[in-house]
Design a protein around this nucleic acid. Sequence first.
DNA 1: ATATTGATTGACTAATCAGTCATAAAAGTA
DNA 2: TACTTTTATGACTGATTAGTCAATCAATAT
Lengths: 184, 184
Amino acid sequence: MDKHSLLIDTSIRLFHEKGFHGTPTSLIAKEAGVANGTLFQYFPSKENLIVEAYISIKEEMANELKINKESNANIIDQMKDVFTSSLTWALAHPLKFDFLQQFYNSPYHHKLKEQTIKKYDQTHLDLIQEAIEQGAIRSLPANLVYALISSHTYGLYQYLRVASHDQRKKVIDTGFELLMKMLT
Amino acid sequence: MDKHSLLIDTSIRLFHEKGFHGTPTSLIAKEAGVANGTLFQYFPSKENLIVEAYISIKEEMANELKINKESNANIIDQMKDVFTSSLTWALAHPLKFDFLQQFYNSPYHHKLKEQTIKKYDQTHLDLIQEAIEQGAIRSLPANLVYALISSHTYGLYQYLRVASHDQRKKVIDTGFELLMKMLT
DNA sequence: ATATTGATTGACTAATCAGTCATAAAAGTA
DNA sequence: TACTTTTATGACTGATTAGTCAATCAATAT
């Protein structure tokens, strides 16, 4: 594993444990097994490291979801695929998923360019827009539907994180049925 | 306004702007118009101040919702009342509502006693449990329903915070209808 | 008026941290 | 090997911070 990725992974873990400002760069370097100064060869500043960590997770997630999304033709099946993949990914990478929330609710998020934020939403918004136009889900503002689906996913994640693992698949299916009952 | 409340209100604003560790206690004291040392007479440590700020918001919210909840007999009306009041309160106090999210996604939240967290959930869980027993909403684990309602509320909040204000009442009503469509 | 009490002050300290930089090690090249 | 380039190191620094504490102030009581 290259030092860039190693530093980002270590950062995500430590930021989650101790918060952004509660984690000194010296500790990140130490836990990643590199010298203090090395960190600043890969990232010009701590803030840059935090933002890069966020972007790397968003990229990773976007790549995972893209693969699972191409095959289906039916738009509801596509939505179910995205929904299921998102939840499965989140439950498989709780540290990273929690980091996204932590970042989103921090002052660093406001420093991102509008464009960067939109970049990762656009694919989902397009899918929702198409589903509305096809009449597959009820006619509401796409942004509202996106907010409702995202938070529904997040709510299920919160529940499943502490619930017993063997019911996960069933609860995810039920969760999607509930979502569709609401949106159609 | 007494200094205790003044310091908490100032903290909430600054923590939201600059994050927990990004806000020095000296700045909180300065903006609250008291001396550095005075802050530590009201709060033994910065961590204590952060936790007290969280608890004060939870208390305030609990008190607001309690008042609006007593009158109705019909359980669906009660739920609608809690839902509407929660959203209205959140939209009227976005700084405080955002602080709750920020706190929840920070390492400080893990330091709270289990009991303290449950304290503010219990009333809502009881209401949900009763609604399930009465058959007013479908039979699902109360914790799951709670997670779904909470996140649904949060999703609507996120949408309404940026949407135009004059549609708020209508969107909140629609939001509750959607929620009930899902849960019945 | 004087004394007593408790709240308030802000200069101070010991510790911590982000970022630098001169030096060294490693890798690449001929 | 001998030389060059790239990467890594960690001691160091200037700046910042949480928390302290001796001194001051305000309010009330005697």
